[in-house]
Design a protein around this nucleic acid. Structure first.
Lengths: 354, 354
DNA sequence: CTGAAAGCGCTTACAG
DNA sequence: CTGAAAGCGCTTACAG
């Protein structure tokens, strides 16, 4: 049961009658700071390697080389959140696939929950990610100072999702929420909708700001009247039948729901108020409808390329490791319009003439 | 932006006015070969750690022979397999939750694909898990020699799922497939079924053998005629309408499908042959129906406690690390019968008298 | 109770 | 063209 001693570089060197440095060079190929090795010395080394069954110890290699070929994955929420599994899963699939291709292992930071503090990068003032070569950051950070400090420390990391950081220029791979929202607005405009309400949450995250920006920009781009772009900040409970009626009375024919919850509130209000979509109004969700049921409703929406975002964030991280001076590295991936059954032509005003 | 040099143990030692050995001891707790440290020296060390933001290098720790509080998760198939996401996900949730509670980080081994070789623990003869304190092994191993060698090397690991290893006694946390199968048979017997066919795959994995064993044992336990227990080994294509007819003609009133695929084949054959379940026969799946749709069909089955298996496998691993002499450690968790719409009372033989 | 030193198995400047 | 040596950052016997 005791672990057998593996042959080491020293054993090989002795057997081949050379120094360890020569063994190292033969195995790694002539590199930057490597010694020169004659052909017959190299042959002796290879022979000894074969005879002894020598395999270099990757741990020692890492120690000597300064890198450990471990990349961190840090989520500001539980890595495998049961309720939101469909949210993070595709990112992780992408990250894993890319890591596998590039020969890196992934360290999941799990033990983050200090007393009451939730998941933090710095625990007791110490950057826990430090033990990796670099890290991919996932999810909504409760505290901007954490990534800011990461930047200060010069630790290589990439955000999944666009981030603005006071005093720092983070690298990220983001989805083009503004563009996705614009596509939805354009689609609605083509269906004849002119007055559109954006139902947003009170939150002001980058991902949400981008949607608002896309909403407003697209009105201009389409030559629509900016005054017809209604913007609301609501809690789900704020979407009442009365509220819905006041919107439609004001001529709103289509709604953009910032997320699923708001879309469901809207539907509930419609139900309670005797409205029906898309007969009385159209609506779309600004992202993938994925919560909480497993079979998504057939709503007009746009697809966020989550898996590709995961993949590319890892690749950007590797680029960063190769040449840190290139930071910040940023990529914005397009979202895809998904037409669904929640949208239809704008209803004609008033009662149909008979 | 230039990366600051990571503080090392030496830096901490200097700042605290102690030797590196003292720092090491404070961080690892008083252990076997550790030095004794006074309370105020320990306090100075902790203070210095905080001030410097020191994090021990896990690679160095490992090389020097110590523990690094990193646990490995190795899957013999892709960790996040898109097609089978629902299969591994619950295990991982459990593993992560337990790791988080116990303060361990998780290293996912991803870069396994040598040329054509699939996922392997030993790559070029080295144990890749070596960097971790121990590992949880997940999924079906194509090659028994890999875990066997792990045992030979004395590397601590726990299988999720029962495993038999020639010449080794692996630790594992398994589901009680035999018991689950027995519950299903009992349930069918209560519904009046006496002749039951077990539709199995040609494969002979432990998890499948356990189901067969449960099938056969339960006949004895229920006092049923063992000759009525029909056992078949089939590919999904083998389940044809003709075959189905021959079984029912022979008096079979209920089927046990080893997996979803076989259950679907059975249903397809029924469809094509003019049969209908549960009118003409009952059937149950021996496990969670989870493939490939997201909303599982309402079949009689049993629930595999995947999340709990993940959680307990990590806990067993920690027990193992604490005291390796207790190996092998084994736990078998109960499965829960899930009655569904695919079973009903046994049809009466022949035509109903009018 | 504490420190100095060897050693884990490599890589890489640095002399010859 | 080649070797001896330092060093990566730890842990752990071993002296004091």
């Amino acid at each position: 049961m005791s672990r057998k001693r593996r042959p080491t570089q020293v054993d090989v060197a002795r057997q081949a009658g050379v120094s360890p440095a020569v063994v190292s060079t033969v195995l790694n190929g002539a590199g930057r700071g490597s010694v020169r090795v004659g052909p017959e010395a190299a042959a002796r080394v290879r022979q000894a390697v074969r005879e002894l069954g020598y395999v270099p110890n990757p741990v020692a290699r890492n120690l000597a080389g300064g890198k450990n070929r471990i990349l961190g994955v840090f989520t500001f929420e539980s890595i495998f959140p049961i309720e939101r599994r469909n949210f993070y899963f595709p990112f992780l699939i992408g990250v894993e696939a890319a890591a596998e291709e590039r020969g890196y292992d992934l360290l999941l930071f799990t033990s983050a929950s200090g007393p009451g503090s939730g998941r933090r990068i710095y625990r007791g003032g110490v950057n826990r990610l430090q033990l990796t070569d670099g890290a991919v950051l996932l999810g909504h950070e409760p505290d901007k100072s954490e990534p800011a400090r990461l930047s200060d420390d010069g630790f290589p990391y990439v955000f999944v999702g666009r981030r603005e950081l006071p005093g720092a220029e983070p690298s990220y791979v983001a989805a083009d929420y503004a563009g996705g929202t614009g596509q939805v607005v354009t689609y609605l405009a083509e269906l004849g909708h002119r007055r559109i309400a954006y139902l947003g949450t009170p939150s002001d995250r980058e991902a949400l700001r981008d949607r608002v920006a896309g909403f407003e920009r697209s009105f201009a781009a389409l030559g629509l009247d900016r005054a017809q772009a209604v913007r609301e900040r609501l809690d789900p409970d704020d979407v009442t039948p009365d509220r819905l009626r006041s919107w439609t009375d004001a001529g709103v024919t289509a709604f953009l729901a910032e997320n699923d919850i708001l879309a469901r509130s809207l539907l509930a209000a419609a139900d309670a108020g005797g409205f029906s979509a898309p007969r009385d109004f159209s609506f779309a969700v600004l992202g993938d409808p994925l919560e909480p049921s497993d079979d998504p409703p057939d709503w007009t929406s746009f697809k966020i390329p989550r898996q590709e975002m995961g993949r590319q964030s890892l690749e950007v991280l590797l680029d960063l490791l190769e040449d840190p001076s290139r930071a910040p590295l940023r990529r914005v991936l397009p979202c895809t319009l998904v037409p669904g059954a929640s949208t239809d032509r704008a209803p004609t005003k008033g009662v149909m003439p008979t």
